[in-house]
Design a protein around this nucleic acid. Structure first.
Length: 292
DNA sequence: GGCGTAACGGTTGAA
DNA sequence: TATTCAACCGTTACG
């Protein structure tokens, strides 16, 4: 369908794809303009992005330091890991009359779970009913891990989840590289917002700047469980407005924070000299996030 | 007029 | 393989 192929046009004349994030380049530009004192309403008009979206992106940036959208799709990490089920089973065996809410409290008290990943009372009840049931054996009642390979996978999942969870921050962080020193970027490629770049670098595998990447977890990353393969160069497909447009065509593909798990965004149509979110589009360029 | 936000329709990906 | 579900998205409209 033509409409979905080329996206839609909002009241300001900007092109967008319903349900999909704005390109990171636009997100970054919104933040940059705000930081040089441009009012949100002017940013909205200039980039042809709704003021609600500008407001949301700026609010998120102010709160978290990240310009990136959240992880779309997928499910939360399972909280009813085999380890948790095992503990529930133990509690039930020790005290057959124990209530689900008591089990929940004990899981917290014993440090098996914390307040962020403790199963709900209904989940515990379901575990008691389905996995422990009458005989107390989680393996005799359609156990979720029916073979050795599955058990290995489950064990790996538990290990991964325990590593994913950062007790220091009490959150599940977005994946990000361990603190490391990375090659330097020519100053000409650096924007005027190094802290923003650092924020971006934290979410990308390809190192771009020479600075140690530590404390890479931002509060907005609480609910991320996927990796991002995208480079900062992919994201920064344009220069700071004061520096004009890049010599080379900006990357016309879409970046997402949840990386390879996200949908593959390809080229859809050709926009010829179209003003795309206030950015001059050279002939042959494609909108960076329209999907096929 | 500018701003914050709820509602809405849509996309996405794990289960 | 198809479906479900719950997360996210940007736009719109309202206060």
């Amino acid at each position: 369908m033509e409409q979905s192929t080329f996206g839609e046009v909002n009241q300001l004349g900007g092109v967008f794809v319903n349900g999909r994030p704005l390109p990171n380049a636009i997100r970054l530009r919104i933040v940059e303009l705000a930081q040089v004192g441009v009012r949100p309403c002017d940013i909205s008009r200039q980039l042809r992005v709704s003021h609600g979206c500008v407001s949301k992106i700026l609010a998120r940036y102010n709160e978290t330091g990240s310009i990136l959208p959240g992880a779309i799709g997928g499910s939360k990490p399972r909280v009813t890991t085999p380890n948790v089920v095992k503990h529930i089973k133990v509690y039930k065996e020790r005290d057959p009359g124990i209530f689900a809410w008591e089990i929940r409290d004990k899981l917290l008290a014993d440090g098996v779970c914390d307040k962020y990943n403790v199963p709900s009372v209904s989940s515990i009840s379901r575990i008691l009913r389905n996995k422990i049931g009458n005989n107390g054996s989680p393996n005799q009642n359609q156990a979720p891990y029916e073979n050795k390979n599955a058990q290995v996978v489950a064990a790996a999942a538990v290990a991964a989840s325990s590593q994913l969870y950062n007790p220091q921050f009490q959150m599940y962080p977005y994946s990000c590289p361990a603190p490391q020193t990375i090659p330097s970027m020519p100053p000409s490629q650096m924007t005027s917002q190094p802290q923003m770049l650092n924020s971006l670098n934290n979410l990308n595998n390809k190192p771009q700047m020479s600075m140690p990447m530590s404390n890479c977890v931002t509060p907005c990353m609480v609910r991320a469980w996927a990796t991002s393969p995208h480079s900062v160069n992919d994201i920064l497909g344009f220069r700071h407005p004061q520096q004009g447009m890049p010599q080379t065509a900006p990357p016309m593909h879409h970046d997402t924070p949840s990386g390879g798990q996200m949908g593959q965004i390809g080229q859809i149509g050709q926009y010829n000299n179209m003003n795309y979110y206030g950015m001059n589009m050279k002939q042959g360029m494609s909108p960076m996030y329209l999907q096929s």
